[in-house]
Design a protein around this nucleic acid. Sequence first.
DNA 1: GGGTATTTGTCCGTATGTATT
DNA 2: AAATACATACGGACAAATACC
Lengths: 265, 265
Amino acid sequence: MANPMYRQIAEDLREQIESGALKPGQQLWTELELRERYGASRTTVRDAIRWLTTLGLVETKPGQGTFVAQKIHPYVTTLTTSDPTGAGEQVAMYGEVDSYDYDAEGHERVPFNTEPQVEIRKAYGDVAAFLRLTEGSQVISRHQKRYIDATPWSLQTSFYPRGFAAQGADRLSDAGDIADGTIRYLFETLGLRQVGYRDWITVRAPDGTEAMFFNLPQDGRVGVFQVYRTAFDQTGTPMRLTMTVLPTDRNEFIVNVGEVPEISP
Amino acid sequence: MANPMYRQIAEDLREQIESGALKPGQQLWTELELRERYGASRTTVRDAIRWLTTLGLVETKPGQGTFVAQKIHPYVTTLTTSDPTGAGEQVAMYGEVDSYDYDAEGHERVPFNTEPQVEIRKAYGDVAAFLRLTEGSQVISRHQKRYIDATPWSLQTSFYPRGFAAQGADRLSDAGDIADGTIRYLFETLGLRQVGYRDWITVRAPDGTEAMFFNLPQDGRVGVFQVYRTAFDQTGTPMRLTMTVLPTDRNEFIVNVGEVPEISP
DNA sequence: GGGTATTTGTCCGTATGTATT
DNA sequence: AAATACATACGGACAAATACC
């Protein structure tokens, strides 16, 4: 059995999809039709469809059928800025929609952030390590959900040492937006100046909550980026950790180093 | 049927894995054992195992059994450098093994690159667009495979406009390494000075060749990073495009902006 | 709203092939 | 060569989701 039958069926369907004979969004044959078409059992045609599903080429909808997967117009985030001090943080930190970013119909894409959800928590593992705090230290966490054109785009949580609030930056632990951005706020209240940041990018399977929010399949076949951004103050001490989770199927990143020209539309 | 039986079985096994009761590399129960354990049919326990497989928690080996997945010690690539001119390119371009990068036993990890495989090709699609060439222009492609400690780590292809060879940089189209790095070579022969670069990072499913090389499952459940690095010369013109493909299960990226302290081991 | 047809999801049983020990 | 374990393939039955009348 050089090539199993379900793989041959999958290959045949794949070619039709990639050649364009079957267009995105279009309904595929039903399992019954495929069974007759290829003279195979239902198990076998279902294995073929599952193969294509894991590859991300088709998706199945109970009660409706199997459809050729739609390509999602990706959202591009630039991780580098010309202004590492974050003075323009409000728009720079995953907030920017570049002027050339339009959807298929030419509408500008509009982002929307929920109000920050604030908690006092204890820092363990990665959070403690990145902020250089001892395990179990208290931190302020500010969590936001982000949408673009009403589709869920990212989950973001920022962590600050608990002491910041006691030292004068008390609005950190209040719910609600800090209008001019937290970086400016920390400079005005504590004299902390952000001089740079480090991003650490990984990919992993989404957990249940993330899969639910992003509308991803519960099995892990669509991964998520996990970006930890550690911001440093003028003494080289971590002043903030931001963890952002974004689905890999709708996000891309840009990194600019040195002198680079603008991106042409 | 609030939760299907195969999901309940999967959850039960998952908890045992994540709690540490089942350790990485350890063999799980066989299908027959699981069938008796949970009083389910073979199909159902296989569905449970398939669920865990897609999540990346276990892997199956025909004739042997099912095993808890090993975590791969990730290799970290820093995308930003303090030297955008690429003078130290030889080690900076995905070539660097940082001094703190050791494996579990404390051995330094040693990278190995194959000799470049050189071809003259026509540029289409992304390659043409990034290099700002018209579709069908000729380009020199230099392809390398990269290993770290004998495990396949990345596939890398660099593209240069064909004209570079004719204008004096003729060794570009020769097979074999260019000892001091291509960036320095292009400066010495054509006076092209690299002033910066832009990385564009995406994630997608591997194709058949990539899955084979990286030893990834043929279905797309483990994705690959695809990093396009466009290098620009002093006139803002693209002088090189490097496409690197790396499995997401063993690679991470770092981006430094502004003043950031060294990473502590 | 209810009922029916359609389609995928879950689950069972069985048999045979293939890889490994 | 034999035993073991996963992979492929067939068959059937009922459940759940959706669309349509």
